[in-house]
Design a protein around this nucleic acid. Sequence first.
DNA 1: TAATTATATAACCATATAACGATATACTCA
DNA 2: TGAGTATATCGTTATATGGTTATATAATTA
Lengths: 100, 100
Amino acid sequence: MSAETPPLSASQLDDIASLFKMLGEPMRLKILQAVCNHPRSVTEIVELANSTQANVSKHLSLLTNSGILKRERDGQRIFYSIKAPLVLKVCDLVRANWLN
Amino acid sequence: MSAETPPLSASQLDDIASLFKMLGEPMRLKILQAVCNHPRSVTEIVELANSTQANVSKHLSLLTNSGILKRERDGQRIFYSIKAPLVLKVCDLVRANWLN
DNA sequence: TAATTATATAACCATATAACGATATACTCA
DNA sequence: TGAGTATATCGTTATATGGTTATATAATTA
């Protein structure tokens, strides 16, 4: 995208836009913040994100299907954690350069 | 967002999500790619992004109002360019770590 | 001033999706 | 097997927004 890099194809732009779209919802960022340090169960995430179980579950599905999170079952509970550390780097970069 | 950084407030998460939302549309990424090297007029951007004048104009307004682009008039034409180089860094980071 | 070029805006439609409530599925343990 | 716990999914509603068409505004030039 910068001057040095070759232009991106339409499908590459679609892929990148899809990732940004995933990161473009405050509730999903809350969820990422809840799991950024170590795996968390859905119940924990619901409490940390201050939302409802159904809503969190839907966002967790989206984040997992897009390759950002991974799921792992332990007994009756399912733990979610970061699969793509890139998203944390991106968030930190924005945090350091965008917020006033 | 990472383990070392303090947690973000709700309003900070909203601000970050808003930026990601701006970057979460392929047409807007096309526009960013069109102006990433030097200022471009709306007509140029319309051609480079392969879209319509009205549609590009609307996206340009959004990108400008959110602080990503800046506008500058020269005669009858208006040139848009990058105001926040952060967005290019973010795109390059994603490009290098997310695309297959 | 009138015509032309360049850009922005308004109205509209279609689609996507976030949130919610209710229900279903899956696992554990008595 | 039945009860309880944990998570996922379904159906609905409300809202946001991308794209289009038509029109408006602004600058240039004849």
